[in-house]
């Protein structure tokens, strides 16, 4: 993948939002480079949606500044260049599919004729061509999801902001969504999406920001984040005999955390511990190993370590 261009398409500078009784977003700063897929990750209730709503001017920040396309006013002024898919999605149920899309295109700021052309093109492309004059009500839920997605991209935006885009999608539509996102990315568009599903983020994101309780825990390129956290993560596969593995894993001098599956274990090395020493002790204790690998941690692992198991369960 190409390296991101230096001028960010979106920056947040110490943005805060308080609601009655609690702080939803607390001095959050981040910057999204042009032309990347950027993940805004966090457990439920971390402040992802609030952050996105502030970017889109749906909510006004109590403090801090949002800059979109290098300008201090938020997303609303640039709606023609931004495609926004909120987490809670809906359409006018009684309108015809094509009319809804043309109207939503007009809302973004493109004229009716272009909106119609684009909408018809996308409907054909996603296999909904013959449904365009039907009422939204008549469509299945999966088809409605496609229409919602079309409404996000039909004005050919430079920046896509997708709030939990995969939630509630059936596998087929999830695939369509993923393919389209990648295709847009290859055409130089920037995609910011929020999710709490790390497996997805790990496959798609180049850059990311993890937040919890409204605060940023880490941000940057996924590869950098992984690199700085590698060398501590050890994956061990057993070939039948475990030997004295249990005692070795219990040694706090060597291992700080263990995730033991019996024939497979993931270890977190204690500070200053030498993986070679663990290998030696395992072998001498009589364990037969099929795998012994120092790994980059999965994003899920990083996420859980950072956020804490409590927050994930929430």
């Amino acid at each position: 993948m190409t390296s991101p261009s230096p001028t960010p398409i979106l920056t947040l500078d110490r943005v805060s939002k308080h609601f009655a009784g609690h702080t939803a977003v607390d001095e959050l700063s981040l910057s999204v480079p042009r032309g990347v897929i950027y993940g805004l990750l966090g457990p439920n209730g971390a402040g992802k949606t609030t952050t996105i709503r502030m970017i889109m001017n749906i909510l006004e920040p109590d403090g801090g500044a949002v800059e979109v396309f290098g300008e201090p006013d938020g997303g609303r002024a640039h709606s023609e260049r931004i495609g926004y898919l909120p987490e809670e999605r809906g359409l006018y149920r009684k309108m015809r599919v094509l009319d809804v899309l043309v109207f939503l295109g007009e809302m973004k700021g493109i004229d009716r004729r272009r909106a119609r052309q684009q909408a018809e093109g996308w409907l054909e492309r996603l296999g909904l061509g013959q449904w365009r004059l039907r009422r939204v009500d008549d469509l299945s839920k999966g088809m409605q999801q496609k229409v919602q997605f079309i409404s996000t991209v039909l004005h050919d935006p430079d920046l896509l902001i997708l709030d939990e885009p995969f939630s509630g999608l059936d596998p087929v539509n999830a695939q369509v969504m993923k393919d389209t996102v990648l295709e847009l990315r290859s055409r130089g568009k920037t995609i910011l999406f929020s999710t709490h599903i790390m497996e997805q983020a790990e496959k798609l994101c180049e850059q990311l920001c993890i937040i919890a309780r409204g605060r940023k825990l880490v941000d940057g390129a996924l590869s950098d984040i992984k690199r700085t956290r590698s060398g501590h993560h050890l994956v061990i596969g057993f070939d039948g005999s475990l030997g004295g593995a249990a005692q070795v894993f219990a040694d706090k001098e060597l291992v700080s955390k263990v995730d033991n599956y019996g024939q497979y274990a993931e270890l977190e090395l204690a500070a200053g511990a030498d993986p070679q020493q663990i290998l030696q002790r395992l072998v001498t204790s009589g364990a037969r190993l099929s795998k012994f690998e120092l790994q980059e941690p999965s994003l899920n692992k990083i996420f859980i370590d950072l956020v804490g198991p409590e927050a994930v369960r929430a």
Partner: peptide
């Protein structure tokens, strides 16, 4: 929830 898309533009 369509209002959210509307008031974003």
């Amino acid at each position: 929830h369509i209002v959210e898309v509307l008031v974003s533009s």
